[in-house]
Design a protein around this nucleic acid. Sequence first.
DNA 1: TCAAGACTGACAACCATTGTCAAAACAGCC
DNA 2: GGCTGTTTTGACAATGGTTGTCAGTCTTGA
Lengths: 146, 146
Amino acid sequence: MRIDRERATQVTVRDQPAKEHRRTRQRAAVDEVLDETEDFISAQELHALLRTRGAGVGLATVYRTLQTLADDGRVDVLRSDAGEAVYRRCVREEHHHHLVCRSCGATVEIAGPTVERWAKSVADQHGYTDVSHTLEIFGTCPRCAA
Amino acid sequence: MRIDRERATQVTVRDQPAKEHRRTRQRAAVDEVLDETEDFISAQELHALLRTRGAGVGLATVYRTLQTLADDGRVDVLRSDAGEAVYRRCVREEHHHHLVCRSCGATVEIAGPTVERWAKSVADQHGYTDVSHTLEIFGTCPRCAA
DNA sequence: TCAAGACTGACAACCATTGTCAAAACAGCC
DNA sequence: GGCTGTTTTGACAATGGTTGTCAGTCTTGA
């Protein structure tokens, strides 16, 4: 197995502050959807949504745009269990995790300094350096449980 | 987004104790590789490995076998960053996490009762029930860092 | 306005994974 | 050892998310 350094996880702290990109209709459209969407959404879903709105954007463009945003640290990425990448505008600037509803996808962003420290110390203990981690909590939200 | 209840994460506790399966050459071969392999391995890699050994096993069979093992809780599954599912014979019986080397895949299994409790309490706080979680730590192992 | 180059979109290509289904292997039984 | 019902296998097709391609279009800075 080979884990790509750059894309290993969305929680890796970025060094470069984000290159400038051109403002285009397509990117604005994707941005708008992300702004309106509370929960994680897949590239496919986003593409379909744009299509129904009439603001057609090519699928490849949606993928590219999301990837760019992710690279710039402007959206959170995580993999749904099906292996599909799902995206979400991140609200917190700092490193954080998610509590995600299994059935509707409702998400709560969570800061966990304790966990951060724990992860760091565990890695140190085993001599691992350059550490990052992924942590997501899944459950059934109150609304879906009702 | 739809997160499948059954496969949401490898850390969900299994209720059923594992159905009996027939012993076949193919399953034995997969088992053997898993026994010998310390680190996470993908279905594709395992398949290729078997092929080079002469113990040819169909790709579909490899997938099915791994899936069965995973369902029975006999192997750990996690998704590499590329979205590929990777498997590993789990050593610990109880719920645990992994510290994985980004470059060589070397893995350390980790128990983190603190984290378990934290995850549970966070979920409770937000009214989420039926909680499970994923947590993996990535880093560069001492050998690769040298 | 203009040119350079970034961006887009339709489509093909990729690749992990799953579905299909007839043939083969297994386990229990005689 | 054979028989038989069931499980398992494997070759192949199909699926589906994602990425590559490349000519045409749009942005931007001059």
